[in-house]
């Protein structure tokens, strides 16, 4: 059960109890809000009203809130938009990142030093919000989903992580492939990709979480509310207490969304993260450390 080294000796029971209490409290502080949100989203209106706006343990479970969300409030569409941007964005971002990481891992490539510094310099200098916005505008990308995907697709940090991983592949493999007449694309496709699957999965998951959670990008670039992704719709439902404009045409829904509906929306927005979470935890400390130590 315990991994305590012998030299540490046995801790006093009081110390153990205090430590246990601290850990319990820390976990409770994280878990409690989720519990309350999930319970409230599943409770009936009567129960919420009787309890004064929140429920910690629903006595009868109702999925009305979820049904209501998908009934023409535009939330269904915003979920599809969010999923689409996340999938396409992650694919595009990984495409750029992994290819560049392989190219830059080749020390004797023409211009390798110059290109590598070109990438690394972006770690130090970040352009301001306004110039990027003006650039996106100049390229006619306002009110398109590309504005959410392309400007943030390439991060030097991700390239450095993947590149470090590729560099750790034994070079004899590349040498023998080249001996057998494989070209660079072939080497990339049949050697680099399969061997760096682990790091690609981790970096890809982090990129995907970033796209899914992005709310300032759409706020900045999308004026058309019908194009809003889930995070922005959730903001107006839950934090600003009104439904998005396209649904206000329906008189029944113009009233502020009910507590349970708001909480159901929070649950829906959290769900994909929770699904990806086991994979994230499995690899993340490894990925973090590769980035931190190998630089």
């Amino acid at each position: 059960m315990s991994d305590r080294p012998v030299w540490q000796g046995k801790p006093r029971p009081i110390a153990l109890a205090l430590k246990g209490l601290a850990l319990f409290l820390i976990c409770a502080v994280v878990i409690f809000p989720f519990l309350s949100v999930v319970s409230t989203s599943l409770a009936t209106k009567q129960q919420i009203d009787a309890n004064g706006g929140y429920v910690l343990w629903p006595t009868s479970i109702s999925f009305d809130a979820y049904r209501q969300i998908f009934d023409g409030t535009g939330v269904g569409r915003s979920i599809v938009i969010s999923l689409g941007v996340t999938v396409v964005g992650t694919a595009f971002s990984l495409f750029c990142t992994v290819l560049a990481a392989y190219g830059l891992s080749r020390r004797n490539m023409l211009f390798q030093r110059g290109l590598l510094s070109f990438v690394l310099i972006t770690l130090l200098f970040a352009p301001g919000m306004i110039p990027v916005y003006l650039m996106v505008k100049q390229m006619q990308m306002l009110d398109t989903y590309w504005a959410l995907i392309i400007p943030s697709a390439v991060s030097a940090f991700n390239i450095v992580i993947v590149r470090g991983f590729i560099q750790a592949i034994p070079h004899e493999l590349f040498d023998s492939a080249r001996m057998d007449g494989a070209g660079e694309w072939r080497i990339f496709w049949s050697l680099v990709l399969p061997l760096s699957r682990a790091v690609i999965a981790v970096v890809g998951l982090f990129i995907a979480v970033g796209y899914w959670n992005n709310y300032f990008g759409p706020l900045l670039y999308l004026n058309d509310q019908t194009k809003w992704p889930l995070q922005l719709v959730m903001r107006s439902f839950v934090l600003q207490n009104h439904v998005t404009s396209n649904s206000s045409a329906q008189p029944g829904l113009a009233a502020p969304p009910a507590q349970s509906v708001q909480m159901a929306l929070v649950v829906i927005a959290t769900l994909p993260i929770l699904c990806a979470y086991p994979f994230l935890t499995k690899h993340m400390s490894k990925g973090m450390l590769t980035g931190a130590i190998k630089g």
Binding site: C96, L99, M109, L110, F111, L115, T122, V154, I159
Partner: peptide, 13 residues
């Protein structure tokens, strides 16, 4: 081929 591979990322940056 290698330069072509780095091109997309460099272009975005």
């Amino acid at each position: 081929p290698l330069l072509l591979m780095t091109a997309p990322a460099v272009l975005v940056l």
